[in-house]
């Protein structure tokens, strides 16, 4: 029975921004806002999606899109409101996950260099899924333009992810 409060930095604020250079290239980490996330599972859910399906390293559009997570699972981003539960008509399972993830935006010409501190993530290695371990944490990573990446971490691990991103940014500052 002991008080470890002081051993763990208090959680970051969503307005906090990390700015630095990685391998001499600019990089900026900030929290990103997403209006709605719907987790949808079903046998044909990837092929029947009416909105763009985004894998790695495809670039997500501005409007609604679906992140390809598993063979039978997508995460709909900024789609329409849905009812949680088993959807008889479409034979899909639906859960609102809007509050389940925290989104970070990693932007700049050094963004991928920073992500390579935590994951073997390469543009020339495509993947059907955006799910991967980053800094040892489960994450979803997709691009919103050539040099901007959105990283979704579970809410409970967002502080760990922020801490890992800031540590990586700090420790590669002396590099190059």
């Amino acid at each position: 029975m002991r008080d470890d409060s002081h051993k763990w930095a208090a959680p970051f604020d969503v307005s906090d921004v990390l700015i630095g250079e990685v391998d001499g290239k600019a990089c900026r980490v900030s929290s990103a806002s997403i209006n709605r996330l719907s987790l949808i599972s079903g046998t044909g859910v990837r092929t029947s999606s009416q909105i763009p399906l985004i894998g790695w390293p495809e670039i997500a559009p501005d409007g609604p899109f679906a992140l390809s997570m598993r063979r039978d699972r997508i995460l709909e981003v900024n789609g329409s409101a849905r009812t949680d539960g088993w959807d008889e008509v479409n034979s899909v399972a639906i859960s609102d996950m809007t509050d389940g993830y925290h989104a970070f935006s990693v932007a700049g010409s050094g963004a991928l260099n920073l992500l390579n501190r935590g994951a073997d993530l390469f543009l020339e290695t495509p993947s059907a899924s955006v799910a991967r371990l980053t800094f040892g944490l489960p994450s979803l990573i997709y691009r919103t333009d050539e040099t901007t990446y959105t990283l979704l971490f579970t809410r409970a691990q967002a502080v760990a992810a922020y801490s890992a991103l800031s540590a990586a940014l700090r420790h590669c500052a002396s590099d190059g």
């Binding site: 598993r70 063979r71 073997d120 290695t125 495509p126 993947s127 059907a128 899924s129 799910a131 991967r132 371990l133 040892g136």
Partner: peptide, 13 residues
Amino acid sequence: PCPFCGLRSEGEF
């Protein structure tokens, strides 16, 4: 090689 995701590092398995 994950049959769905492709090549990934051992730590993910």
